[in-house]
């Protein structure tokens, strides 16, 4: 039942090329997915600013438009304001735990260095081992890097908190039960001319097409994420045949082959959205002209727009918090490994110190 433990072992050049190829792949994937998500955010933002689709549903001027009700139910189902409130409260604790691990690790190094220096001061040339300060330079540099990362995380926490503060009032309103939500939205006289008018039908159709474009992106995202490839074999062959690996060229060519069609479909999709959004804006202008605009209608519309935005903000804040929580948890694992490195080296130095002391006392 022999298993080759070294089956996955490859020459250093291949290892480095595979690592570089994976970075390029991740960059490509992130770029594609990033541009799709950005397009969805843009789309949602534009629609919210036009009070769409709520304006098309709001024929009574009184009941909560269906799309707003759906947004409300979606947030309530995700735990409403309380769930993000709680998670935001947890962030400082997660930060603190990470700081403590880092601080303890660096203190171990500081304490051992202080003792080492003390003994060097006492024994001078006879204390002839490398100073701890020199040995610990790389670890301290790593520790410094971790500090910078934590500083950036603190800033990110602040951004999340500010987003929350800016939107919590509207989010709270959107999370209220239907009757309270309805009561909080000012009434307006319904625009009777809206029903059956052509522009309403045109807008509805354009919005439906836009939904389709958004759904297509979800599918595309899944497909992009599911692409896998492994260039190890190709790199091994190149190294054996040519003595060198032209990683950039080989990876670019593989990426083109694997993601070329996805890239095209993404670009097509984004162009389609752009077209639809400008068509919608033209239709919306016609639509606005049709409506009886009075101050009650405008006030009502303002509130509906804010409620639609509140939904998008909630989704964004939720996602930010999830990202932050994962970040801190992942960082803890990494810092614990760092802590082990520090305690290992300090333990070795202590053992060495005790032996040196014994020798010096004997001599």
């Amino acid at each position: 039942k022999f298993t080759d433990l070294f089956e996955k072992m490859v020459p250093m050049a291949v290892q480095q090329s595979v690592s570089a190829a994976n970075s390029r792949k991740a960059e490509t994937v992130n770029r594609l997915i990033g541009s799709m998500r950005e397009a969805t955010n843009l789309c949602n933002g534009v629609l919210a600013s036009l009070n769409l689709p709520a304006a098309l549903e709001d024929l009574s001027g009184d009941a909560v438009p269906q799309s707003i009700l759906e947004k409300s139910r979606a947030l309530i189902q995700q735990g409403g304001l309380q769930s993000i409130e709680q998670l935001i409260k947890d962030l400082p604790e997660l930060l603190q735990r990470n700081r403590e691990i880092l601080d303890e690790s660096l203190k171990m190094l500081d304490d051992e260095e202080a003792t080492d220096n003390e003994l060097r001061g006492k024994f001078n040339q006879r204390w002839n081992r490398t100073p701890s300060g020199d040995l610990y330079k790389p670890l301290r540099a790593e520790g410094n890097n971790f500090r910078n990362i934590l500083d950036k995380a603190v800033q990110a926490d602040q951004v999340v908190r500010e987003r929350y503060t800016a939107h919590c009032e509207m989010i709270a309103l959107l999370c209220k039960p239907e009757n309270e939500l309805s009561a909080a939205i000012p009434s307006a006289n319904p625009a009777k001319t809206l029903q059956g008018s052509e522009v309403v039908n045109v807008l509805r159709s354009q919005l439906a097409q836009l939904d389709e474009v958004k759904r297509e992106r979800e599918v595309l995202e899944g497909e992009v994420k599911s692409v896998t490839f492994d260039l190890t074999a190709k790199f091994l062959t190149a190294l054996a045949q040519d003595g060198a690996i032209n990683e950039e060229v080989m990876t670019s060519s593989e990426l083109d082959a694997r993601y070329g069609s996805h890239n095209q479909r993404v670009q097509q999709n984004l162009r389609r959205q752009e077209e639809l959004l400008s068509q919608i804006q033209v239709s919306h202008q016609e639509f606005s002209a049709l409506k009886q605009s009075n101050s009650e209608a405008n006030t009502r519309e303002d509130v509906l727009k804010k409620l639609a935005s509140a939904h998008d903000s909630y989704i964004e804040i939720s996602s930010n918090i999830k990202e932050g929580t994962k970040f801190y948890n992942d960082l803890t694992e990494i810092l614990l490994k760092f802590q082990n490195k520090c305690s290992d080296i300090v333990f070795a130095r202590k053992t060495e110190r005790d032996e040196l002391l014994k020798e010096l006392q004997q001599s």
């Binding site: 950036k152 990202e323 932050g324 970040f327 960082l331 990494i334």
Partner: peptide, 16 residues
Amino acid sequence: SLYPSLEDLKVDKVIR
């Protein structure tokens, strides 16, 4: 993404 990336740090590059 709002938070810094930990990708570089996840791989322990030091070969002892």
